[in-house]
């Protein structure tokens, strides 16, 4: 997890067969420039980055569902609840569930837990659009592969 580079997911752990659920893991780094400002002497992961973490897990789920033919853009956050502080070194278990696969959009429910304790959850809405070009699409799929997305879900 590199907060300052928006690399929020360390590993994709599993995707179910019909590509409606994805689980992932990350560990909050001990040090990050983000913690220098949020907050000096009291480092906490900003809530917006927890939302971003859920959005990235959801994005990988939706893009996997489309065979990496469409890219996801977060456009809505509903019922977002940030339930507790998240400190450096915290292990995160992230889940994303596809709530609706619409025409040009998708809705997920996502959550983060740490050692069984609820950290945050939200309903997220995404627009789905074509990738800007094939090279960009490959870069995203390659990143998913690096994170451990099983090969049967990757573009051939």
């Amino acid at each position: 997890m590199l907060l300052e580079y928006f690399q929020m997911i360390d590993r994709i752990i599993a995707v179910n067969d019909d590509v409606t659920e994805l689980s992932a893991q990350s560990t909050v780094p001990e040090k990050s420039p983000v913690f220098e400002g949020h907050f000096p002497g009291m480092p906490l992961v900003p809530g917006v980055l927890l939302i971003e973490t859920m959005a990235q897990a959801s994005g990988f789920l939706v893009m996997t569902k489309t065979g990496f033919k469409l890219m996801t853009f977060l456009v809505g956050v509903k019922q977002g609840k940030l339930r507790t502080f998240v400190e450096p070194g915290t292990p995160l278990d992230i889940t994303a569930t596809l709530e609706h696969d619409g025409s040009g959009f998708a809705v997920t429910k996502a959550a983060i837990k740490s050692e069984g304790k609820n950290i945050c959850d939200a309903s997220l809405t995404f627009k789905t659009l074509d990738f800007p070009d094939a090279k960009f699409a490959k870069m995203i799929a390659d990143r998913a592969a690096e994170l451990g997305l099983p090969s049967q879900f990757l573009p051939k």
């Binding site: 609706h100 696969d101 619409g102 025409s103 959009f105 809705v107 809405t125």
Partner: peptide, 18 residues
């Protein structure tokens, strides 16, 4: 988008917005 989501769910359809 929210309206289409709610309609899709209510009627069990997928409005072909695209």
């Amino acid at each position: 988008l929210d309206i289409v989501f709610a309609i899709d769910k209510e009627f069990g359809i997928k409005i072909p917005m695209e």
